[in-house]
Write a protein that binds this DNA or RNA. Structure first.
Lengths: 185, 185
DNA sequence: GTCTATAAGATGATAGAC
DNA sequence: GTCTATCATCTTATAGAC
């Protein structure tokens, strides 16, 4: 097998399992078995399970934003783009059976000593927040709130909606959040 | 030891560890050792680790609302009571070193088959939402949003703020969320 | 680089003595 | 009801052959 495709396969399988079952409930054994790669090979490519986790998170972030850009490309109106960001998250949750935001989920699963993982999660959240701020800046909204406050509100309602989607296993709160945000644009 | 105090001690120790270290990262071994109770005794009181978890969550919910009522008792103005609910959560997060909402955290840690645990989490979230709705109903607010929408907004921003507190290990977003909510009251 | 065998310990849970 | 000894399995990670 190609050198890189071993890595890719491990990240792919591990990511799917981490996402679906949870990080702590997924053992290295299961990952290597389903990826059909030997234990030693895995540890040749990744120093530790944490290392594999971080590789997965970094790849996920890349894919997430790439896929978002694609989803928003046909939409030009900034208002509609902002609402489409909600829609993007709703659809991803539906496809993932409402497992919640993978980054948030991981942050709840890791131990207090895993500082690097937490930093990776923070980096993703920072990027999402910046993305929202960028869209808000382009919207000529109703000015009930400042740009900063509107950004904060949207970010928090999205985070809250994602948590709620995972807890109730439905997109209700995300959809209601989207509707409320719509009233401010 | 009194029959009930064995149970209480186990719930207390387990709860503290589940909260601080995470549920999956806390073994039964550590719980019984720190509680100074024999393995067999623990399984005499609780059928399983999941059983202990649910007992902890139920006790936590009881304590949480009892403590909230106490915190709000001196405040009469419904507006101030709503903002004090934010303050209550900020203070609890500060005391708990920003470990996030225990119920949300647990929902991210458990496996897909633990339906009863998820129901316990939902019950808590339902109660919080109802509590917010009750306060909103008493407020003569600025009517930018309906009571239902305002309740939803506050609930989602609070949930989002709690997640954010856990990820960034600071109360920034919870405080900013509180300020935004204030503008609607 | 890939593999198998194995280490060293932790996991949740049970059996059976007292 | 409380205890200790033990089960069977799983955990992450490493050593060393090829």
């Amino acid at each position: 097998m190609r050198e890189s495709s071993v890595k890719e396969k491990l990240i792919g399988v591990a990511g799917r399992l981490f996402h679906k079952q949870g990080y702590n409930l997924t053992g290295i054994n299961q990952v290597i078995e389903e990826a059909d790669i030997a234990r030693g090979s895995m540890y040749n490519h990744f120093q530790s399970k944490t290392d594999l986790l971080i590789a997965y998170l970094e790849q996920f972030q890349e894919e997430w934003f790439r896929s978002l850009e694609e989803f928003l490309r046909p939409i030009t109106d900034p208002k509609k783009r902002l609402l489409a960001l909600f829609e993007y998250r709703i659809r991803r949750q539906q496809r993932a059976e409402f497992s919640g935001c993978p980054f948030t989920k991981i942050s709840a699963e890791i131990g207090n000593e895993e500082a690097e993982v937490l930093k990776t999660v923070q980096k993703f959240k920072d990027s999402v927040r910046s993305y929202i701020a960028g869209l808000v800046a382009q919207v000529k909204h109703r000015n009930i709130l400042t740009n900063e406050a509107l950004t904060e509100m949207i970010y928090l309602m999205m985070e809250g909606g994602l948590v709620s989607a995972a807890i109730y296993k439905n997109p209700g709160d995300l959809k209601r959040g989207k509707k409320i945000v719509e009233q401010f644009l």
